[in-house]
Nucleic acid binder design. Structure first.
Length: 235
DNA sequence: GCGACAG
DNA sequence: ATCTTGTCGC
């Protein structure tokens, strides 16, 4: 596929221009179709970096809708191959997420990604890239804004406003908890913005982030801690 | 030229 | 993301 770690590794910093071309080309493959009313297995993906070791840790945690229980966890550890450049996050994180997904015994019905989807300068954020590369329905859930402007949503849980960039509605600014900073939700692939907000609200009750993403975040933190050792020493 | 800028 | 102590607010 047009998304393998070796290719990504050779991408930077040589040709941001070709990365832009790739994003523009693949953006045409994003589909905004209706998601089933109640996707059963929903996963969250997240990463953590160890600057000192130059390593990256990725985890995908799959939850079952009816019980809310974790049904499977997939992990991946590898070297950091690409620097973080705003607008090109997927080249850095995407390959690791795909590697983790490969470890799953069964793919989820929906994947929540920690980052933007269509709420991206070229409408091809991390969630879109992972969605198009895998064919899975994906949603972008970011904790801060990459592009676009918006009004502040009401302070109550469930309140939302439109995120608009160059005249297009590219996402929603959604309050998942009363009085807490809102999340930036956008379409990744094979979902509509409506579905995306519905799912994020469903999975984010006690905390700001939806449970699958929150657990993936916790998982990569554990992975780092284990590698670092109980004392946190390098040797 | 001056900011803005997912993780 | 990660580095980091104390500190402000409910």
């Amino acid at each position: 596929m047009s998304f393998d770690s070796r290719a990504a590794g050779r991408f930077f910093p040589a040709s941001l221009a070709s990365a832009v071309d790739l994003q523009r080309r693949l953006a045409g493959r994003v589909r905004q179709t209706a998601l089933p009313a109640s996707p059963r297995r929903v996963a969250g993906a997240d990463l953590s970096y160890d600057r000192a070791r130059g390593r990256l840790y990725a985890a995908v945690v799959v939850l079952e809708r009816s019980s809310g229980e974790v049904v499977e966890i997939a992990r991946h550890e590898g070297p950091v191959r690409v620097p973080y450049v705003p607008g090109f996050l997927s080249f850095r994180e995407g390959p690791a997420i795909l590697a983790a997904l490969d470890q799953l015994s069964r793919l989820p019905d929906l994947l929540l990604c920690d980052g933007q989807g269509l709420a991206h300068p070229r409408r091809f954020g991390l969630a879109c890239h992972v969605g198009v590369a895998t064919g899975l329905p994906t949603v972008g859930v970011a904790k801060s804004r990459l592009c676009g402007t918006h009004r502040d949503p009401g302070r109550r849980r469930g309140c939302r406003t439109r995120l608009v960039d160059r005249g297009e509605v590219v996402g929603a600014v959604l309050r998942t908890r009363t009085g807490v900073r809102p999340l930036y939700v956008s379409v990744g692939h094979r979902v509509r913005l409506e579905d995306a907000c519905r799912e994020v609200l469903f999975w984010a009750r006690r905390f700001r982030s939806p449970e699958p993403v929150r657990l993936a975040d916790r998982e990569v933190a554990v992975m780092r801690r284990i590698v670092a050792g109980p004392t946190g020493q390098t040797g």
